[in-house]
């Protein structure tokens, strides 16, 4: 039974992870996004991650999609969309994207919108969180607000980068019963 669907959006798609994604995923995790994370050493770890992605979705603990850009017959895997900390009874979940630098904000935003749309319609989730860790690309913060997320809190030293060093984490939330601002509108209009 397939719990993680393939979903298309303008410029790409998200789809379930498959065993043959190992090499492409290894390339993604050679350039980890989060401060303090080291490049993945052993590609075999990804086999376990791919297995886990199926188990997580089946037990409603999380979901992982391969994020591909391109069009029919010419897709390239540039990242992974992860949904974790799934609280079915609280109707909330946390999202993240691990992607290569060439995966731009517009495609990240489109992938997030697509996954949010699926999770809200299929599982009735309404509260979506996203953690921005100090040191990540600052442009992601604007991307999040553009698609309806708001900054809720800044956790001091919420992310550990080494044995004794920490950085702050910004927590963004999007509640689906709130209006999503029109990304094409300009202030004052």
């Amino acid at each position: 039974m397939q719990f993680t669907p393939e979903l298309n959006f303008d410029g790409g798609r998200v789809r379930p992870l498959a065993a043959e994604d190992r090499d492409a995923l290894f390339r993604v995790y050679q350039q980890p996004e989060l401060p303090g994370q080291r490049p993945l050493q052993d590609p075999a770890q990804l086999d376990r991650m791919i297995e886990l992605s199926v188990q997580m979705a089946a037990t409603q603990r999380g979901m992982m999609w391969a994020l591909e850009v391109g069009s029919e017959g010419n897709y390239e895997l540039l990242g992974v969309v992860g949904a974790f900390d799934w609280q079915p009874s609280m109707l909330r979940i946390t999202l993240r994207i691990d992607g290569l630098p060439e995966l731009g904000c517009d495609l990240r935003a489109a992938a997030l919108e697509t996954c949010i749309g699926f999770l809200s319609s299929k599982y009735h989730l309404r509260n979506f969180a996203f953690q921005w860790v100090d040191g990540q690309n600052p442009a992601y913060r604007d991307m999040l607000t553009r698609i309806g997320f708001s900054l809720s809190a800044r956790q001091r030293d919420g992310w550990r980068t080494a044995e004794q060093t920490f950085v702050d984490v910004e927590l963004y939330h999007r509640l689906l019963d709130q209006d999503v601002p029109d990304p094409t509108a300009r202030a004052g209009e």
């Binding site: 509260n127 900054l151 800044r154 956790q155 030293d157 939330h173």
Partner: peptide, 24 residues
């Protein structure tokens, strides 16, 4: 004080926000 997290749980038929504090 670090902020307020929206709709963290449903309690007594309403959605509950939670304020967040920390000490390091």
């Amino acid at each position: 004080y670090e902020g307020c997290l929206p709709a963290q749980m449903e309690f007594d038929e309403r959605w509950i926000d939670q304020v967040l504090y920390s000490r390091l």
